[in-house]
Computed example of a mutant assay.
Amino acid sequence: MTVTYNAEVATVRGLGCFLKLLARWRGSIYKLVWMDLILFLTIYYSLNVTYRYILDESGKHVFESMVIYCKDYVNLIPLSFVLGFYVSVIMTRWWNQYTSIPHPDPLAVFVSATVHGQDERGRVMRRTIMRYVCCCVTMIFTMISPRVKKRFPTLDHFVEAGLLQQSERDIIGDLDKKFPKYPKHWLPIVWASSIVTRARKEGRIRDDFAVKTLVDELNKFRGQCGILLQYDHINIPLVYTQLFIVILLRIL
Rank of each mutant, 00 (worst) to 15 (best):
A192K: 06
M125Y: 11
C134G: 03
I144T: 09
G14H: 05
L238G: 02
C70I: 04
P153C: 00
L83H: 15
G162I: 10
E217Q: 09
N96Q: 13
E64P: 12
L243A: 09
C136M: 12
V9I: 15
R206T: 08
D208H: 05
Y69Q: 10
T2I: 11
V89Y: 07
F209L: 08
I54Q: 04
R52S: 05
D156N: 14
A108K: 15
T11P: 00
V148R: 01
H185W: 05
V109E: 06
Q166E: 13
Y240W: 14
E120D: 13
V124H: 10
P78L: 00
I90P: 03
Q166S: 11
P153D: 03
I171Q: 08
F18W: 12
W186Q: 06
Y53T: 12
F141C: 04
Y98C: 08
L249F: 07
M1W: 06
T11H: 10
L252Q: 02
V133D: 00
I68D: 06
L249Q: 08
S194V: 09
G84M: 13
T2K: 08
R13D: 13
D170H: 11
V239Y: 13
P237I: 05
R206V: 02
Q118K: 14
I140G: 03
F179H: 11
F81N: 13
A161S: 11
W34G: 00
V137R: 12
T92V: 07
G203D: 08
T50P: 07
V190S: 05
R121C: 04
I101F: 06
F221Q: 02
K177A: 07
Y5M: 12
G203T: 02
V133M: 00
I90T: 11
P188V: 02
R127Y: 07
K20E: 14
I129E: 01
L76P: 05
G16P: 04
D174V: 11
E57N: 06
R13Y: 09
P104F: 14
N96M: 13
H103L: 15
M125G: 01
G27F: 07
A10G: 02
H116Y: 15
K150E: 10
T92W: 14
T99S: 14
P153T: 04
F110P: 03
T4F: 15
H103S: 15
V239Q: 09
V111S: 01
F18E: 14
C17M: 11
V89K: 07
R93P: 14
T2H: 06
I195R: 08
Y73C: 00
S112G: 13
L41R: 01
P104C: 02
T11A: 05
I140L: 05
Y53L: 06
K60G: 12
Q97D: 09
G173A: 14
E8I: 05
V89D: 01
D119R: 07
L41Q: 00
G59Y: 07
K201V: 10
H116C: 09
P183N: 01
P146V: 13
R52K: 14
L164V: 05
T99N: 10
T114G: 01
M1L: 06
V49Y: 15
Y98I: 12
I90F: 14
G27L: 13
P104D: 08
L163C: 00
P183I: 00
T42K: 08
C70Q: 08
K177R: 12
L19P: 00
